[in-house]
């Protein structure tokens, strides 16, 4: 409704002006509304075809491949960087695992060394004990042998004493000195 007064206002005085601007023989009422003025259509279509056609070609051949390329390069770069990050993380994980492994090995080794040392000490102590025991044993045997010698000597002395005593007793009883050999045999018989 705002259009109508403006339109009416225009058509009356601007008849001459329209004629100069639109310039066409069909000067009837429709021509007053520019978008419906068919006389301007060929020009608009031609120039639209030229400008839009060139625009289309320019975008298709130059601009769009370029932007597409920029985006693709960026996407690749980001993917590559992510890959790199993942790889670095993997390496870090591997390093941590290796460290843990080494730590565990070291711990096991330390344990082993301690065990060996303990075993060696134990074996040493055992050997010491055995040598001491053997020494004692040897001394014991020697002592026993000496005792036996002493006792044997004593026992031999006992025989002699008994023979002498028996001879003296027999001499005292019968007043005659007995034969030594007979006494010895008799003593030996008693023993």
């Amino acid at each position: 409704m705002f259009v109508t007064p403006g339109y009416a206002q225009e058509t009356a005085p601007a008849e001459g002006e329209l004629q100069t601007e639109i310039v066409h023989e069909e000067g009837h009422g429709e021509a007053g509304f520019p978008p419906f003025d068919t006389s301007t259509y060929p020009s608009q279509l031609l120039w639209l075809a030229i400008t839009f056609g060139l625009f289309y070609l320019f975008l298709q051949k130059v601009v769009l491949p370029r932007i597409g390329n920029i985006l693709e390069v960026r996407r690749d770069r980001i993917a590559h960087d992510l890959d790199q990050a993942a790889r670095n993380k993997e390496e870090a994980d591997a390093a941590v695992a290796a460290y843990e492994q080494e730590l565990a090995d070291a711990r096991a080794k330390a344990h082993g060394i301690a065990q060996t040392a303990q075993d060696a000490a134990k074996a040493d102590a055992e050997a010491e004990r055995k040598s001491v025991e053997a020494d004692l044993e040897r001394k014991l045997v020697e002592a026993e042998r000496r005792i036996a010698t002493v006792r044997e000597a004593a026992m031999k002395d006992v025989g002699t004493i008994a023979e002498e005593t028996a001879g003296a007793i027999v001499e005292a009883l019968i007043d005659r000195k007995p034969d030594d050999a007979a006494v010895a045999a008799a003593v030996g018989q008693v023993r």
Binding site: F2, V3, G6, Y7, Q9, E10, A14, L18, E21, I22, V23, H24, G32, F33, P34, P35, D37, S39, T40, P42, S43, Q44, L46, W47, T51
Partner: peptide, 27 residues
């Protein structure tokens, strides 16, 4: 005038085969 802004005016008149292909303000 609210319609005036849609007016097409010829800047470089071109006419081919009786049709008006002028370079206009729209062009």
């Amino acid at each position: 005038d609210p319609i005036h802004q849609f007016q097409i005016s010829r800047l470089i008149p071109i006419e081919i085969g009786g049709l008006d292909f002028s370079f206009t303000n729209s062009s």
